[in-house]
């Protein structure tokens, strides 16, 4: 009976650690150091996080042209950039979709959308869909707030921009703003992860 118990506990431990491994493979958790990248911006120039020498961190947003949720947030993303770029947290938008699967998210149409909406931030194309899986983004929009530290850009918040995609007026909690405000005050981010409905990334 005792052997059985030990075996059971051992099996349980194995099972739990197996799940933990799977989990950490599927993208960043809070506290992980996020990878830098060199991706093509809508002005045809490559952009890396390392280019922003003065930044204290980044609001990295996986977003795209076609998704209604992404569109619903475009104005709010511009407002985030306007508010936080000067405080050291610029918005870096990345389109993770493969245009062969979702033609509305082609690089040419990204250029058009950025111009139409007057994007104030880099809108990068994840060519070959290599960066978003490392972050673990699953949908658009999907936000990662990174804090620049000596160890690298540390993930401090993952999730939604706020708690109401359909009506900006009805927003009660601005998750991303609260996270960046806390980091600017050297405080702990109050809500570190949230979930939102979004369009699955088309790879």
């Amino acid at each position: 009976m005792k052997t059985l118990k030990i075996t059971a506990v051992f099996a349980l431990v194995c099972l739990i650690s197996a799940f933990t491994l799977v989990k950490s493979d599927s993208g960043y958790q809070i506290g992980d150091v996020a990878t830098d990248f060199s991706l093509k911006n809508v002005n045809d120039k490559k952009v890396s996080l390392a280019d922003f020498k003065e930044a204290k961190g980044f609001i990295v947003i996986f977003t795209c042209n076609h998704c209604p949720y992404a569109k619903a947030y475009e104005d709010r993303i511009i407002a985030l950039d306007k508010k936080y770029k000067k405080l050291g947290y610029p918005v870096i938008a990345i389109n993770p979709n493969n245009p062969e699967v979702q033609p509305a998210d082609s690089f040419e149409l990204m250029k058009e959308r950025a111009k139409e909406k007057g994007f104030t931030f880099p809108y990068l194309f994840d060519e070959g869909q290599k960066i978003y899986p490392q972050y673990g983004a699953t949908k658009t929009p999907h936000v990662y707030v990174l804090q620049k530290t000596k160890a690298g850009n540390v993930v401090q918040y993952i999730g939604a921009i706020d708690d109401n995609y359909s009506d900006e007026e009805a927003v009660k909690t601005k998750y991303v703003e609260n996270a960046v405000d806390a980091l600017l005050k050297n405080q702990e981010v109050p809500v570190k992860t949230t979930k939102a409905i979004g369009c699955s990334i088309k790879a």
Binding site: G159, D163, N164, A170, K195, A196
Partner: peptide
Amino acid sequence: DPDANAWIE
């Protein structure tokens, strides 16, 4: 129900 974070899980 736009407050998706409250119900997705």
